[in-house]
Amino acid sequence: MCAGCIFLKPRVFVDSFVKKCNTRLLNIAWIIGYRALSCEELEVGGDLGKSIDFPRVLRKIIISSSSVSEVRNKLAGVNYKSMFVTVEPLSMEVARWSAHDTRVDTMLITSRNTELFNKRQLGIMKYYSKPLEIPILYLLGEDRAESALYRRIRLYASSRVPLVISSMATHWHELIHPYSLLKFLKLSYDIPERIGLLAVSDIPWFIISRKEGV
């Protein structure tokens, strides 16, 4: 197989975290090449999930907590078979616990919980193949937190922990073209294009395709 052939294969690009989905955003997402989205808030009437010119849409829930019991209670009330469940751990015990819980699809890294994703956490996430979700919004800032994120992302990418890159868009213009995203990750965060491509296509699509109603 040739080195560049991975890019020739048609891909299903997925944005696994959009904050607010409306008709305009879904239309633009379809135009720029996304075929599936995971939305926290859906402001569209009707069944868009099956329409032709819109990407497949899945509801997303983000659980931010520092206690395991709270996460457990929230997960008990969530239909995790038809929703994209992401946990933003704010304490070490939540990070460790959610890394091996099968109801949790991804773990969110933000500027608030960067220090929780250490080498030990990496080992657990790698063992259970738990993807690490990175919102691109946090990678575009100019704070000191970005350098910490850079080190963590490099560590996790080099250790072959599955990565998921999302836009965290609220408006349509906050979406990023997948090809631009790959170039940005390569130039600014030294993530190889092959890993970046998996992070915006195959890994999130594998999660979404398991869900009911997609």
């Binding site: 575009l140 213009h173 906050e174 990023i176 073209h177 090809y179 631009s180 995203l181 170039k183 940005f184 390569k186 130039l187 600014s188």
Partner: peptide
């Protein structure tokens, strides 16, 4: 590559 990344980041 720099230009393509920049085009995507222009909002």
């Amino acid at each position: 590559s720099y230009l393509i990344a920049t085009l995507g980041l222009t909002k």
